[in-house]
Nucleic acid binder design. Structure first.
Lengths: 232, 232
DNA sequence: AAAATTATCTTGACGCTGTTAAGATATAGC
DNA sequence: GCTATATCTTAACAGCGTCAAGATAATTTT
């Protein structure tokens, strides 16, 4: 689909919007063939340009993958925030909601998820990528703290200072590890031997409830400190 | 190192022990260059044979990676069992011990760990691989049940029937997800932005204690049920 | 408006990869 | 000692990412 986002106007030269066409092609290839079947030449082919063309926009393959990873991380954050909104309205557990959104996103496009977490060369120090990563991480930190009855670290909009959250780090790591681990185990096929009907999605549907409920219950609530009294 | 496990006796033909030489070379390459820098030709080069030679022993690259993955899974299981033994003698928490062993193994050779979990084409249905995977999974299931005060599913030595452990599946998934997620986040560099002294190993050392303690505490103990009656 | 500059894309080539077919050589069986 | 089989080499193939050089389009300058 999205043949090339815009055909070469007349001749062969000057695609015009190659950067976004390459990204669109890359997303398609990742969705169709996964990360293993992903090649720069195939993306260029779909965008209707020569293999050397993308170098002007991304430098090299690493640059393209970094761009994809940035978008992927952004979608991850967006999916989590949407899940929070939905949970707020329907009164569900917020932490379980973002956990579900995280795994669902990974399962929806495993190739892309693998790019986000650097299963192939990419630049983790790229500013845009770091910004997307920081945003998603900030959501997780905030929700973990809320789940424990603690106020957010900073007013929304500001990026959280990294060293400030040190005290909560183990709790955040627990939450992230659970959702990330479950995601990777699922998409890498490590759980396929469990069989059952419906494949991986069904495995998620069957176990997500209890799994994330245990996660939420595992985070120790801060009782005596701060304003809000913890329940339990 | 381990130049070729045994030099070509005289002429160029007939290495003699190519299979194990290839595996040794592959382990070296994975340790040195990681999965991204891993190639079949480089392994063949180190083993002192032509690029086409390994095909008689492994079929193709997938076959070699499957063999490596099998050994990797076996080592994972061995490390976990050794950790249990150590924890028994020193009175530590058994579940925390195998969790630590799992992450430590992953961090010790990330390239190999990635092969085990199929970041590159391999045959997950290979009998030897499945046996190794089942063994490691069996250890995890047993320890999760012990941690909850439940008896093992089957006498040691017999392979656990998969569908029997269904009731405990969420708990097992929680444990596996935590250790696997923490491992992959570490080796993929997703936590590097947290900075701190000592890098990833230090990050593990600093957080493993509370992280795995929370995991152990999160597994609900089976208090009154005794017999294998379903609960909840 | 014409010319010069810059950005963009093509062509062609390089060394690398995994895989295959055909031939050479060593080991094992008879 | 001859034959059969397993093992390895050589040579070639297509596909990969990348680079240098040249062609073309868009933009800016004059």
């Amino acid at each position: 689909m999205a043949e090339a986002t815009s055909r070469p106007a007349r001749g062969h030269y000057h695609h015009g919007a190659l950067r976004q066409a390459m990204i669109a092609a890359a997303e398609d290839v990742l969705a169709e063939r996964g990360l293993g079947g992903f090649t720069l030449r195939e993306c260029a082919r779909r965008a209707g340009v020569s293999p050397a063309a993308p170098s002007h926009h991304f430098g090299n393959l690493t640059g393209l993958l970094t761009a994809i990873a940035t978008l992927g991380f952004d979608d991850l954050a967006t999916a989590m925030e949407a899940a929070i909104t939905a949970a707020e309205e329907q009164g569900g557990n917020r932490l379980a909601a973002i956990a579900r959104a995280y795994v669902e996103t990974a399962l929806g496009n495993p190739g892309r998820f693998r790019v986000v977490f650097g299963q192939r060369d990419m630049d983790r120090l790229d500013p845009a990528f770091r910004a997307a990563a920081t945003r998603a991480f900030g959501i997780l930190v905030r929700e973990v703290r809320l789940s424990r009855g603690l106020p957010p670290l900073a007013p929304p909009g500001e990026k959280p200072a990294i060293h400030v959250l040190e005290p909560d780090l183990p709790e955040v790591l627990l939450a992230w590890s659970v959702v990330h681990g479950f995601s990777t185990l699922l998409i890498d096929g490590a759980l396929d031997f469990l069989g059952g009907e419906g494949g991986r999605q069904a495995l998620l549907d069957r176990n997500a409830g209890r799994l994330f409920a245990m996660l939420a219950a595992a985070l120790p609530t801060a009782e005596g400190l701060a304003k809000p009294s913890g329940r339990d």
